[in-house]
């Protein structure tokens, strides 16, 4: 019980502290804490549950990089019922890692006052998987088969791939994907979407890497940069230094996490002790690969690549996910990133 009471005790401690401050200030003897004055309170809402996908943030947080930049940062995990766009737009969180270019553009289209200040995954972070010994050998083989994909954005990537290959999407059965890849492992579906750092790992463990065939959207002319770093337009305008400081600390966190992978995974697993270590190690490497893919190789991590964003935008507009064109420049702002020297940003 003692552990569980800690928050209560802290709460009481806070009350006592507040009382002391009030009493102290009336007596003119209070000496305000130096830290409290200098640090800006902020929070980062992750896109998903704590895992190595966010290793850089956990590393920077634990190592005090945010504090060094003057930020008292709280790391808030995401989850299946949370939408980072909503939490940031409502002011509940300062920073957020949103679903991706698709969900951010849709949110801006709906009038949410959000702007992305960096893009984590430069390429589509998921692939479509079939069995090597199964009937699906090429994209054309998708016809007449059962494919499973998340209807939270992943479906547009599949639609785009099919579209570019001249396949009518009504020619196959597309099922909404839930949390589990069991339907694929059981052979109930022929194709399934898999995050390259997450589901793909599970499928490889269950079936064997050499028995799988992967379809990458980039090979079929589609790319969806994802895991966009977002703030409100208000934060971007009024606290540019905070945004820059956050970016600097996060970039440093990622670089150092990759340099000390064991320690980085330890820190992630402190937040979520029940995770599988090997899986997390794989996830961190894979996440970093996605972060340093494409233009980021030369322009540094979090690079905002207008060309790929524009192609994603055009596709979403054509498929009526967006009601009107959204200028890339209003939804993405690379100025904060560019203020950081390139040598710090480069992988």
């Amino acid at each position: 019980m003692i552990l569980s009471l800690l928050p209560l005790i802290k709460k009481r401690g806070l009350l006592v502290a507040m009382l002391t401050v009030v009493l102290g200030s009336t007596l003119m003897v209070s000496a305000p804490s130096v830290n409290a004055q200098e640090l800006t309170e902020a929070s980062l809402r992750l896109k998903w549950l704590p895992q190595a996908q966010f290793a850089g943030y956990y590393y920077a947080h634990a190592k005090g990089y945010y504090r060094e930049e003057g930020i008292d940062l709280t790391l808030n995990p995401g989850g299946p019922n949370l939408v980072a766009e909503n939490l940031v737009a409502s002011g509940a969180d300062t920073f957020g890692i949103s679903g991706g270019s698709d969900s951010l553009l849709a949110a801006v289209d709906k009038g949410m006052p959000l702007v992305s200040v960096g893009v984590s995954h430069q390429i589509t972070p998921f692939v479509f998987v079939s069995r090597k010994d199964g009937p699906v050998k090429t994209l054309q083989d998708f016809k007449g088969k059962k494919a499973m994909v998340w209807f939270t954005g992943g479906n547009y990537v599949l639609f785009g791939m099919l579209n570019n290959a001249g396949i009518d999407r009504s020619e196959l059965t597309i099922l909404p994907q839930q949390s589990s890849v069991t339907p694929f492992i059981n052979g109930d579906v022929d194709v399934i979407a898999a995050m390259s750092f997450n589901e793909l790992y599970t499928i490889k463990q269950q079936i064997g890497e050499d028995k799988l065939r992967l379809f990458k959207s980039e090979d079929f002319g589609m790319t969806f940069p994802r895991d966009t770093l977002i703030v409100t337009k208000k934060t971007a305008q009024e606290k540019p230094e905070l945004v820059k400081a956050f970016l600097r600390a996060s970039i440093r966190g990622w670089h150092d996490a990759m340099a000390n992978p064991k320690e980085a995974i330890d820190l992630v697993m402190q937040a979520a002790p029940t995770l599988n270590r090997e899986h997390q190690e794989f996830m961190m490497q894979e996440s970093y690969r996605l972060m340093t893919a494409g233009k980021a190789k030369t322009e540094g991590i979090y690079w905002i690549d207008e060309a790929s964003l524009k192609s994603a935008h055009d596709f979403l507009l054509k498929n009526k996910v967006l009601s009107k064109p959204v200028p890339i420049a209003t939804a993405f702002d690379g100025s904060f990133l560019k203020s950081i020297p390139i040598e710090l940003r480069n992988p």
Binding site: R45, L46, L49, P77, G79, P80, N81, L82, V181
Partner: peptide
Amino acid sequence: EWFGDSVGVGVLLLHAMYNEQ
């Protein structure tokens, strides 16, 4: 606890469910 917490039985459930443990 399914709304972005880091400790709790609900968090354990979520982690296990989404990591297929």
